[in-house]
Design a protein around this nucleic acid. Structure first.
Lengths: 154, 154
DNA sequence: AGGTCTGGATTTAGAAAGCGAACCCATACA
DNA sequence: TGTATGGGTTCGCTTTCTAAATCCAGACCT
């Protein structure tokens, strides 16, 4: 196994690290579960609540936070014959988290799955071949994990 | 923008979803910050504490949790001329989260960066060309996000 | 118009977790 | 023998979480 060299501190302090900032935004159980549901198409308050089984206060607060952060857009939704209600849809910012959550799904399949075949898989449109999260260079060719180098002050 | 079709519930319930399970394991602010530091080479209790500035009780609990979940390995570490102490290193399970955290870093660079060039970038060994997190098919060729199809009960 | 239903919340009070500071313990070294 | 150091735990206090009840606005019904 590739061992990471010992360090006393990370190369950049958390307060100026975009990974740490991203963790501040999405690094929360309920927030991640909301994003999971949203990526599956859930948009309405009560649907989120039924899905997550979390206190409505928490849901209300997390939705506000995600709207403030720009991951969700709140806008009125008008079902025919019903009054207008808000719905929460993913912005481009929120949608762009999809590869990360798919990667996390596959990590869960690999390490937490109870042995059965994963209930959800992902394929390339038009084919049946499974896809996986990986690294690619500028030309879209895969880079193996052991070939990755970290460069500071890029 | 590709819109996700409305759904009242997610296609699989959270309790049998490996993504939801993964979120239970790593979906926590301190846990993610610990993994971030570990991926940069931090291994020792006090180094984690100096890095995260979190209460030692919380750090202690999260490290235990990560060891129990199998992401970290706790083993004695013997510096020359010092007494043996525990160190926490990433297992294969923990190391395999690296693509996801790099992906999250790049998401942060794209959406949260304050305008400057990202302080950390990743390249392929031997070259200067930047790499990025993406999806590939079985042959290692990139699959664009809009080409991803979700298949249930795969 | 009045009553009811429904989705989208806020209020309230008790339980859990987070937090900072102080303390403890084992061992290398002077 | 004493001191320094790394790796924790204990102790109160504050914040956050949680569950249940309540509120509110707009359709729909009669």
């Amino acid at each position: 196994m590739t061992q990471i060299p010992l360090a006393r501190r990370s190369p950049i302090p958390p307060e100026s690290c975009n990974l740490a900032s991203a963790i501040e935004v999405v690094g929360d159980r309920w927030t991640l579960l909301i994003l999971r549901a949203a990526l599956y198409g859930v948009r309405r308050f009560d649907d989120f609540q039924a899905e997550l089984k979390c206190p409505r206060t928490v849901l209300s607060g997390r939705l506000k936070g995600l709207v403030d952060a720009g991951l969700l857009v709140k806008r009125p939704y008008k079902a025919p014959g019903k009054r207008a209600r808000p719905e929460y849809t993913l912005s481009a910012m929120g949608l762009s988290l999809r590869p990360i959550l798919i990667g996390l799904t596959q990590w869960g399949d690999a390490w937490l799955g109870v042995g059965e075949s994963p209930p959800i898989s992902f394929t390339k449109a038009g084919t049946k071949a499974a896809i996986r999260a990986a690294f690619v260079d500028a030309d879209g060719r895969e880079v193996r994990p052991d070939q990755i180098r970290t460069v500071i002050r890029g």
